[in-house]
Amino acid sequence: MTEEFKPGCARPTGGPVGENISAEENVKETLVKEERQMIKVGKKAPDFTAPAYHNGKFVNVKLSDYLGKWVVLCFYPGDFTFV
């Protein structure tokens, strides 16, 4: 499901998947950012890829690879914080 990757010196990052945002749209997106709404229940969860640490390995995670399973996606403020 996930693919292992070899870390280089740069910090690995991921991002949204599926939406081809052109430079022009990107600018527009920045302009309307203040109006962006919370995502809605009953609607599709935005797909993404992200590098991850999992059981001793560095892997790439893609949300859509988990279709067919329930997923709990938990964001949190930071490692080594207290809560």
Binding site: A45, L73, C74
Partner: peptide, 18 residues
Amino acid sequence: VETRGRFIIDPDGIVQGY
């Protein structure tokens, strides 16, 4: 930073709750 957002996503990829 991210705030403490928790999303429940069903097998069809639909957000059922957060």
